[in-house]
């Protein structure tokens, strides 16, 4: 049920998101105080350099960077190309959030830094090679399992629903920078949101070969995603990354490489039988002998009534359990 907006309301909403509206706290000529993180890779030294920039009507972060480069710091390194939210080269962190410099309104006081999670080349320029290597390792192309049957292919909008959302990606790396799990580095093998969006363009295309999809998914570490939605929050292309990319990819992995999805499959099995999650059963089934290493924690939880082994053993068939069994066992996954 889509609600149609009245023309006035539509205008009000689009107006409130314009650069002019977001700039409305500033008057032409007002000083914008900006500090930019300067980084020199030859010395490895990083420092903040302050600048004062006069506000001009409808000013964007990119206009401030251009002003600084033209008037104060000709050696400032930053990237941009299209200036219109297409090329994805100008993403930076402004006041601790990832933005496209070409699309973000200025604020009276700004701290501008390079993106996180990628090596810095100089100042605001980052090296995208780690991202590109990950994407290449996924073999991001279509391989048909049967020969092309000719035009038109039997594809519906519904079949392509998620893949087509992923095709909106402009590879700006904002999500990659915002991801807290990528930030943990070597701790996990999580590929990160941006590479997964690239992967989804072909993996969620029904024409792709399933064995090849399984091979790609095995390299993603996708079940290390914490579902924090930081990627969706910053995506300038407004791709619903968690719901339309990561979750459909997880579903594919559960189907083609069940060993990856052991946690989710066990979780589901417990809900099917109990209706609710019994945390003790979940942990015992997932961690098995490793759980014994946490005897201290188990005792603490037991003493405070947070776990109850009797409930875990008893497996009472509550009304919730009956409902869950009936609803979920009609589904595909068993």
């Amino acid at each position: 049920m889509t609600t149609l907006l009245e023309p006035d309301e539509l205008r009000r909403r689009s107006d409130s998101d314009s650069l002019a509206a977001r700039n409305s706290i500033l008057q032409p000529g007002d000083a914008i105080y900006v500090q930019i993180r300067r980084f020199d890779s030859s010395t490895g030294m990083s420092r903040f350099q302050p600048f004062e920039v006069p506000y001009q009507k409808w000013m964007r972060v990119l206009d401030v960077l251009n002003y600084v480069a033209n008037h104060a710091a000709p050696d400032l390194a930053y990237c941009w190309f299209c200036g219109s939210k297409m090329c994805g080269t100008c993403a930076v962190r402004m006041n601790e959030r990832e933005v496209l410099a070409c699309w973000e309104a200025v604020e009276p006081i700004m701290t501008i830094e390079p993106l996180h999670n990628l090596p810095i080349v100089r100042d605001l320029v980052v090296d995208r090679a780690p991202y590109e290597r990950k994407v290449i390792s996924f073999e991001p192309w279509l391989e048909r399992s049967k020969p092309y049957e000719g035009f038109p292919e039997p594809l519906s909008h519904r079949d392509m629903k998620n893949a087509s959302k992923a095709l909106d990606c402009i590879s700006c790396m904002a999500c990659y920078s915002a991801c807290p799990v990528v930030r943990l580095g070597e701790l996990t093998n999580f590929a990160g949101p941006a590479p997964l969006v690239q992967l989804a363009q072909t993996v969620l295309d029904p024409r792709n070969d399933q064995a090849k999809i399984a091979r790609s998914l095995e390299r993603t570490g996708i079940f290390n995603c914490v579902s924090c939605y930081k990627c969706e929050e910053v995506c300038p292309a407004k791709i619903p990354i968690v719901t339309h990319v990561i979750e459909p990819l997880k579903a594919k992995a559960a189907q083609l490489v069940p060993a990856m999805a052991q946690h989710a499959i066990t979780f589901r099995a417990i809900v099917v039988r109990r209706g609710r999650i019994d945390p003790l059963e979940l942990v015992l089934r997932l961690q098995r002998f490793r759980a014994l290493l946490n005897v201290h924690r188990a005792v603490a939880l037991l003493r405070r009534g947070k776990i109850n082994p009797l409930v875990t053993i008893a497996r009472i068939r509550s009304r919730a359990a009956q409902a869950a069994t009936r609803i979920l066992q009609t589904g595909k996954l068993r």
Partner: peptide, 22 residues
């Protein structure tokens, strides 16, 4: 009293229809 789990992040990822139904 008879309400089930909402499926946390696990069910909604691997079994969307079951997730919506619960």
């Amino acid at each position: 009293e008879s309400a089930t789990c909402t499926g946390a992040r696990e069910l909604r990822a691997i079994d969307p229809i079951g997730f919506y139904s619960l």
